[in-house]
């Protein structure tokens, strides 16, 4: 897979630091599953956390800390103690399987009109943002839209073009809120993307954008 568009370095740094909200972390993790170059990049960035921990000052721990730890060693194993065995699901990279166990075709798509479908994926109750699939019919355009905040879009299948170039499988569009764009799916295949948004993504015309404050969209 030849990935051309990668996440912004600051997004990868936030992933390594562990501060991304779950939908964003999942989109990055899924990209990493598809992009060997970024897996190497993350190993480099992880060194920052390692070096900072290494450089931390030492705060004394309580005297009985080791004994308390020893007392807990015989508790049963937990999930994550071994490498997670993830079932293979067609068209679904490993980290996404948990969120989409039955595959892309079985996703409960909702038609949004104009050859666009969306499907919300469940995330932890504490998540502050949305994780969703977006399907754009072959040759169809997503209405021009702005972004309510940081938006990550990972192409899973098919491809689209916008003013930033061509985005195919594994490519990621890492956009801040000041970006307007109009993706058009390539002919021949529906384009399916995994999207994290921190505000409701509105498909809107320029006029709808103006009306939005009045109609409470």
């Amino acid at each position: 897979m030849s990935v051309v568009h990668h996440p912004d370095i600051t997004t990868l740094m936030a992933f390594s630091a562990g501060t991304l909200d779950e939908p964003y972390a999942l989109v990055i993790s899924t990209h990493l599953a598809m992009c060997a170059a970024c897996r190497e990049q993350i190993k480099r960035i992880d060194l920052i956390g390692g070096a900072l921990l290494d450089a931390e000052e030492e705060v004394p721990v309580e005297d009985d800390a080791v004994d308390r730890l020893f007392a807990r060693l015989d508790t049963p194993k937990e999930a994550g103690d071994t490498i997670n065995v993830i079932p293979k699901v067609r068209d679904v990279p490993a980290p996404l399987v948990r969120y989409l166990p039955d595959g892309l075709d079985a996703a409960p798509w909702k038609a949004r009109g104009g050859g666009v479908w969306t499907c919300d994926l469940p995330v932890s109750a504490n998540a502050q943002s949305r994780l969703m699939l977006l399907k754009v019919g072959a040759g169809r355009a997503v209405p021009e839209h702005g972004h309510g905040g940081h938006e990550l879009t990972l192409i899973l299948k098919g491809a689209y073009k916008d003013r930033f170039g061509r985005f195919g499988p594994g490519d990621i569009a890492d956009h801040d809120q000041d970006v307007d764009h109009q993706p058009i799916a390539e002919m021949g295949e529906d384009c399916i993307c995994l999207v994290a948004v921190d505000a409701k993504l509105n498909f809107r015309s320029r006029i709808m954008k103006l009306l939005q404050p009045f109609i409470g969209m």
């Binding site: 993790s29 990493l32 490498i83 997670n84 490993a94 932890s124």
Partner: peptide
């Protein structure tokens, strides 16, 4: 209180 599985599921890769 968020899932860390996006990280752990990468371990196999």
């Amino acid at each position: 209180r968020l899932s860390n599985k996006p990280y752990e599921d990468l371990d196999g890769i």
